[in-house]
């Protein structure tokens, strides 16, 4: 989600810019000390790789597709500091050259997509690896989990920025539910692709995976966790996604705003009934949804999640098809 100008107010953007400058500065210093001069071309090449991956849409289901953020991947492959630097440079170039993400929101975007994804991804990876056996399949598993979490936390960063200084007073609970819900879905894709890439690299050059260097793994073929484990991961991701929408949205939302308020004001019901979609689920919802606030919000959140997901997927599909040269950053 490359935040554009005007989406988040000036004070919050400024605060995020300070955080981003501090974080990126630290990463540059630490990364440079640990990695020496030979890492500059390396970082540039890996940044090109991450950029290319972000342009490579992978199929999610039946013709819709998503793309990678790459923060956790970069951190596992290159270490946290270099990961931060690489993804931040990608974000900076996207803002300046591709107009992707606002210049005034650059701090927000670096913080969300550079700092948070790489550092959270790395933290989660390390934590999982201290708990798990030091074997190749578990390195891959830990990468998958770390990548999933990095995407969800990045969306939390977005929600936090919106809560602090977002335009338009959308109820924070609904935004939270919808954003984290959608991103726990997107995170599944991020996790699987990250895991598969880490597995592919471990299979050929395990020495290149920074996060696994100290385990001295030999190149091996049996890399991906079993089908059951992957299935479990996908199911868990879906469950978390739904749980977030159902429970988090209403809890975080103390005053009854949002869609149920719209419904109560009858405006929405009226249009729903007047329109040709009177038989649609939305119309159904407007009858049952107003009975109590909580159900209303839950349904609103669910509909919001599904709508955002479908619309996003649809756009990715359309844009992806029309313009083979990428830049269809409809993802997070």
């Amino acid at each position: 989600m490359h935040i554009p100008d005007g989406f988040i107010n000036g004070a919050t953007s400024l605060g995020a810019a300070v955080v981003a400058a501090g974080g990126l500065g630290t990463a540059l210093r630490r990364g440079n000390r640990a990695l020496k001069d030979r890492q500059i071309p390396l970082a540039g090449l890996v940044a090109a790789f991450v950029f290319a991956l972000q342009m490579l849409n992978f199929p999610v289901a039946a013709g819709t597709s998503g793309h990678l953020l790459g923060g956790a991947l970069a951190a596992v492959l290159l270490g946290p500091w270099m990961g931060v630097v690489v993804v931040s440079v990608v974000v900076i170039v996207q803002a300046l050259l591709f107009a992707d993400g606002g210049v005034s929101a650059l701090g927000l975007n670096i913080t969300n997509m550079g700092l948070l994804t790489a550092l959270v991804g790395w933290g989660a990876f390390r934590l999982l690896m201290t708990l798990l056996p030091k074997r190749t399949a578990f390195v891959v598993g830990a990468s998958i989990g770390a990548a999933w979490l990095s995407v969800v936390v990045s969306s939390l960063g977005f929600v936090a920025a919106y809560a602090l200084g977002g335009s338009g007073q959308a109820p924070v609970g609904t935004v939270l539910g919808a954003m984290t819900g959608v991103h726990s879905l997107i995170g599944i894709g991020e996790g699987l692709i990250t895991g598969a890439i880490v597995a592919a690299v471990l299979g050929v050059r395990p020495d290149l995976v920074y996060g696994a260097q100290k385990y001295e793994l030999a190149a091996s073929r049996r890399l991906m966790p079993g089908r059951m484990a992957i299935g479990g991961f996908v199911a868990a991701g879906l469950a978390v996604s739904l749980a977030l929408v159902i429970f988090v949205a209403p809890l975080a939302n103390s005053n009854p705003d949002g869609l149920e308020r719209v419904a109560r004001d009858q405006g929405f019901i009226a249009t729903a009934e007047d329109s040709a979609t009177a038989e649609s689920p939305l119309a159904d919802y407007s009858v049952t949804g107003v009975e109590n606030d909580r159900t209303g919000t839950v349904v609103a959140g669910l509909i919001g999640t599904i709508l955002v997901f479908l619309v996003g997927a649809g756009i990715l599909m359309l844009v992806g098809r029309k313009r083979p040269q990428p830049k269809s950053e409809a993802g997070p």
Partner: peptide, 26 residues
């Protein structure tokens, strides 16, 4: 590929691409 579980080959090629990028960096 049309479905997410058909991505193995794509991811493998992305892994190969990373290795190529890294080695070119060197």
């Amino acid at each position: 590929p049309r479905w997410i579980w058909q991505n193995r080959a794509l991811a493998n090629s992305a892994g190969a691409l990373f290795i190529r990028s890294y080695e070119r960096g060197e």
